[in-house]
Each structure stands twice: as C-alpha cells, then as structure tokens.
Amino acid sequence: MAKVTIDGKTIEVPEGTTILNAARMIGGEIVPPAMCYYTKLETSGGYCRTCIVKVSKGSEKDPRPMPKPVPSCRQTIMDGMVVENITSPEILEARAGVVEFLLINHPLDCPICDQAGECSLQDLGYEHGKMKTRYEFKRREFEKIDIGDKIKLHMTRCILCYRCVKVAEQLTPGRVHGVVNRGDVAEISTYIQHAVDNEMSGNMIDVCPVGALTDKTFRFKSRVWFTKPVDAHRKCDTCSGKVRLWYKGEEALRVTARKDKYGEVEEWICNECRFDHKKTSDWTIEGPSHIDHHSVISANHYETGNALAALKHDIAKQQKQLEGNDMKLKEGAMNPNNQ
C-alpha cells in the first residue's frame, strides 16, 4: 500500500494505482476529468491531457516535485506523493487551455448532435472551459461516413481519444478502422469504405466521449434528456446481456451498455443486444437506472420529484401491458423500490 495526498485529502491505495484512480477512490470534486482514459481499455489514456495534475512532492523517498504537469491517468502513485489538482491555479489554467484546444476545431453542433446531454466534452467545456473562444479561423471539417450499417462517424466532432481504436483492438477479432494521416488532419477512418462488422463493434459508440460515433438506429429519434433509462437484461450467449434501455414514452429508442458514474461501461454488450432487441418484451426490466452523472441529463433528472413519479407511472403501465401479453416477469424486477 502507498499513501498519496490529493488536494489535501490523503488515502492509502495499492501500489501501481494511478493518481486518477486514487482520486476516484477519494471521490468528489477533486477527481480530474478524463476524456481519453478508460479503465477497461488497456493502454488508454495520456492523449487528451485534461486530467493533468501537479505533483508537488514525488514521494517520501524522493520528495522533489515533478518538473511538468503529469497525466493523472497514466502516472502511478508513489508512497508519500503529494498531488495538486483543483488547489493549483496553474493546473486549472492549463486545463482550461486544454479544453480550449479541444474545442477550437469542434463544430459545436450540439443542437443537432445525438450525444448532446450525455457528452463528456459538453461537461468538460461547461465545468472547466472559458466562456468565449479566441479562435477565429475556419474549423476543420470532415465528411460524415457510415462505418457499417449501424454506426455513423462524424469525424468533425472527434477529439482523437483513441478509445474506439482500442475497443476494436482489444474486443474484436480484426481491427478494420484506425487513425490515418497525422497532426491536426489525423482522423479515425477505415481508409477505404470498409464496414466495421463484428458483434462487439457497437461498444465503440459507448466509449466515444463525444458525438463522433453515434448509433444510427437512434439517430435523430430524440434528445437524450427526453428519454428515460431503465436497467434491463436478457439471456445472451455473446455478452452479459445487462443493458440500459432508453425509453421515450412506451417505446425503447435505444439500447446501451450500463455506465458508471465516470461514464465508463460496466460490462460490454454485443451488437445483437444493442441493435436488434428494442421491444420491451425482449427484456427483463430491473428498474430505473441510477444516473450519477453531472451533465445536462442529470440536471433535469427524473429521479427527483415529479419526474420520478412520472417514470414510475410509465413503468407500471408497461408492466400491465407485459402481463397482458403473458410475459413471465422476474418477481419484483419491475418494482422501482428494489433499485
């Protein structure tokens, strides 16, 4: 075990833990934002630089400060390390700089972007960015393309986090997409029109922190904040079958993996679960999802007051329908109080 102090809060963590994960164990506002790091994807992180922190004391053994800010997602802690995140004005300023860099070529087309409301870049901009851009040149543009019949790639929105490439590398049998070209014209691409066609490819949508990879079956169907997430499962031979259904009224518009409070997928799901099962009757409903997220979606969240009551009502209504359809339901699964 090793002791680390982040913004004055001390915690003991196992050797080899990164600063970011130590911060997540402490929790709260001292947790640095992360746009490219993803716990389940090996070698992820280090690219976006939003999680940079200052190490003001290297360790008990070698107390020298580190000369430059370090990416907290990749830097492992040493015993006695002291880290400054939100207590360091330089770090806050540097992070605002990174946010600005990430946004200068971003189209800011949130009004027509399916990701809006659950977009890490929106949250990042809102929480760590500045009010105004100083960029006055033409923004970079790419053609929209389909990679496979279920996934849309809006490269213009991409922040090159490499998560989708790592999904393809680590979850699928043969990677057909990657990063081509270099510098600020580097892009996620299949290079030639190539379908990303394998049963786990849909996870690329879930790991994408922005609206660069979106679910074509959900495209323009609804703003995410008008849909209500419900945890559900089904028996699946390919994946765990544990998903989140996103309802608008009585219709499930979208299926995604379940995500934790840092927006990371809890268990990968297969394309069949994601794209081919949108009927409530395909699923065993567990109850409303707990969304511990700080974005637009939770600002207007159903768990509070009237919204929750409305959802309970919706679920009860569906339960009745299902019963009418002679569907066998797991006992108590539809009771929101069981959540």
Binding site: Y47, C48, F101, I104, I159, V179, N181, G183, D184, V185
Partner: peptide, 21 residues
C-alpha cells in the same frame, strides 16, 4: 512544427496549427 505534429495529444495537435494561422 504544425506539419510534423503527430496529432496524439491535444495541445500540440491543435495548438501548433493555431499558432501557424
């Protein structure tokens, strides 16, 4: 430097081009 930036990390990828402009 703009031309030679590999494009991996955001400050260099976006910043070098911005300075050139």
């Amino acid at each position: 430097y703009h031309h030679e930036s590999c494009g991996q990390c955001s400050p260099c990828r976006e910043g070098t081009g911005w300075m050139e402009k």
